[in-house]
């Protein structure tokens, strides 16, 4: 196996083109190095992009209010970033729950989505914020793809052999919007999610939902938005009955499996409760109290 130090982004892209599918891009390596050690991945070369910090390691706000997260931005940076904390706190919460400090120091947000684990914590919040993945290749330059289409299956992503992810972009928030990420594990940290749920809630008026978005992880082969549930809420008055209805529909929609972490039955039981919990958390963040909304 070769180890290629990319000194410039072009070098990384050229190396990817030359290697034609035989190489893997290495950033933090928290997933990749284990996969190599276990023989699950056997690339002929590692293209190390860790030295491209000038190009890829920033969280920046564009003039039109979009937040651009470079491919080398670590979970630790996400957790500490003021703009993320202010606008997308669910993402900060999710990044803060990926492993411990050691993993967060080196593990990147881009790496988390490229690994495309069904239990990846950051994917649900990125989905509810309709994150866009920016991909670059030497041959075709830049292209954007919605995260929803970027992840095509369990540990499968829509990327060509000569491409790499260079950034992730989040759109500015509408007014009266809050988000939440709730995660279930046996311990308070260091958990691969037993189940996770992200929500983004925009209120259109007192007690009237503008838009509700919800996505879950560890509830099926791929993290997805639950659009049928979301549709129930658009323009509707937020009532206890509606939350119950949304929660139970979500519970029916997900297709979890039994694995060593938990049974499918538990996941079916807990996801509706997380849904309700997320509604309450979003409302609390918005400072809205709705009478009759039960805690559980």
């Amino acid at each position: 196996m070769d180890f290629i130090y990319a000194q410039k982004l072009e070098e990384a892209l050229n190396a990817l083109r030359t290697q034609a599918g035989r190489a893997k891009v290495l950033a933090g390596g928290t997933d990749l190095m284990i996969q190599i050690a276990r023989g699950e991945k056997q690339p002929q070369a590692l293209i190390f992009i860790g030295q491209l910090k000038d190009d890829l390691a920033a969280v920046s706000l564009s003039q039109d209010g979009h937040l651009n997260i470079g491919a080398l931005v670590t979970h630790r940076q996400i957790c500490a970033d003021r703009q993320v904390q202010a606008s997308y706190p669910a993402l900060a919460t999710a990044s803060a729950s990926v492993g411990g400090w050691q993993t967060q120091s080196v593990g990147t947000l881009a790496g988390n989505i490229c690994n495309a684990s069904p239990a990846a914590d950051t994917i649900p919040p990125l989905l509810v914020h309709e994150a866009v993945v920016t991909i670059q290749s030497a041959a075709r330059g830049l292209r954007d793809v919605s995260l929803e289409y970027f992840i095509t299956g369990r540990r499968q992503i829509a990327i060509e052999n000569d491409e790499m992810v260079v950034g992730i972009t989040l759109a500015p928030l509408p007014a009266d919007t809050a988000d939440a990420y709730l995660k279930v594990g046996r311990r308070k940290a260091m958990e691969v999610a037993i189940a996770g749920l992200a929500m983004r809630l925009t209120m259109a008026g007192p007690e009237i939902v503008g838009e509700l978005r919800v996505a879950t992880c560890a509830t099926g082969p791929v993290s997805r938005r639950a659009r049928e549930v979301e549709a129930l809420f658009s323009g509707q008055k937020l009532t206890d009955e509606l939350v119950t209805q949304g929660a139970s529909l979500l519970g029916r929609m997900i297709q979890p499996i039994d694995d060593t972490r938990a049974s499918a039955q538990y996941r079916k039981l807990v996801i509706p409760k997380l849904f309700r919990g997320a509604v309450l958390e979003c409302l609390a963040k918005l400072g809205i109290a709705i009478s009759g909304l039960e805690k559980s």
Binding site: R186, R187, K188, A189, M190, E191, V192, T260, R261
Partner: peptide, 16 residues
Amino acid sequence: YMERSLEAYRLPLAVD
């Protein structure tokens, strides 16, 4: 054994 690693066999942490 179903649990075969320290990821699956969860030893309590300081926060727990």
